[in-house]
Design a protein around this nucleic acid. Structure first.
Lengths: 192, 192
DNA sequence: CCTATTTCGAGACACTGTGACTCGAAATAG
DNA sequence: CTATTTCGAGTCACAGTGTCTCGAAATAGG
């Protein structure tokens, strides 16, 4: 915890190195997979000293999180649609594509997976799930239309919406490995 | 691939060693967590040679799968209830408890997590999900009662039922690490 | 210009897990 | 008694981890 001292002292952090690491992680994840991706390899691939990586990130998971956060948000965001069911359908199709085809989605799955093994990673992703955050605007518009009660628990409703797709991709017959098969468009479920 | 030659030749496999390994994996998962659990450690804990472990299982995941499969089935099985909503409620409460509190549930989460990293593990758990298998009898009884259409896609319906709880536990605010907090009883969703 | 401070890339280091290997002993069938 | 296979135990090369050191580079203030 730095005390947020203003202008800093000494050589400033190299943004080029930061970007290089982020890109390296992004590339290596899709090329070799999360398991084969090592801190050593990331540093080498980025053309960066090993200590430089460890100085700014504590784990693969932290780098990955920073590397794909923006992409994930962009890929999941949808604007207002014609109706609530139409928005559900569009959103769920996007979630399905994200989880099964997008590199950012692969990173998300890897992070959720790692969270089941490592409490630190679980803490890292806790309370800032990109899927939930993307679902919230959809739910709020549904509330505005009067299709959902105004006192709705957004987190629970988001889980209701996302859960079935999430479960099928992570644990179902289309589990894990990057399957090139086309994503199936899921039906929107009825929310209480 | 053995050709299933009947009476076998040479010294038979030691069932004591098999049980010891299974118990060691079971214990170490709850005591140290999946990440800290190593093949080396398992062999030592079980008082078994390292090669003996590698001879019968290819990975931690395989051992874990064999170790908890029966426990998982037992913990998730529920008998017929008074009504379909009551069965949904009971089943989902059991799923929630399983995922958040049971050692077998922790193993299940670890396996699903590992499947996101390793295609072999994904293949291993593909098409034999204990949660889906436990949901199927519930759904079939609902069909018999006329509460669900007889041509229902069981896998999809099971995902609809399980998904929300699954998502909240694996990715939601109650992510990952074994949280001693009491499981919240989820509302049963409406199935199409 | 000079110095203090911090990051940079590069690499050495001890430690640990992996998975294949060897060894002699034990258990089974013929 | 022999062939075969598993047993526990241990050795081995290889690779990744995370910390450390090194000299160079980049910044601020004197």
């Amino acid at each position: 915890m730095k005390t947020a001292a203003g202008p800093a002292l000494g050589r400033p952090r190299s943004d080029a190195a930061r970007i290089a690491v982020l890109h390296a992680v992004d590339d290596m994840l899709v090329e070799e997979g999360y398991a084969a991706m090592t801190m050593k390899g990331v540093a080498a691939r980025a053309g960066v000293g090993r200590q430089t990586v460890y100085r700014w990130w504590n784990s693969k998971a932290e780098i990955l999180l920073e590397a794909v956060k923006e992409d994930a948000r962009d890929e999941l965001a949808i604007g207002p649609g014609e109706s609530t069911p139409a928005e559900y359908r569009d959103f769920l199709a996007r979630v399905s594509r994200f989880l099964t085809e997008s590199p950012a989605g692969a990173a998300y799955r890897a992070l959720v997976g790692e969270a089941q093994h490592d409490a630190k990673v679980a803490e890292l992703i806790r309370g800032s799930d990109v899927l939930v955050e993307a679902a919230v605007p959809v739910l709020k518009r549904a509330i505005d239309r009067g299709d959902l009660p105004s006192d709705l628990d957004l987190a629970h409703a988001a889980a209701e919406l996302i859960g079935p797709v999430f479960f099928r991709v992570l644990a179902g017959p289309a589990t894990g490995a990057p399957q090139p098969r086309a994503a199936q468009t899921p039906r929107p479920p009825r929310l209480a």
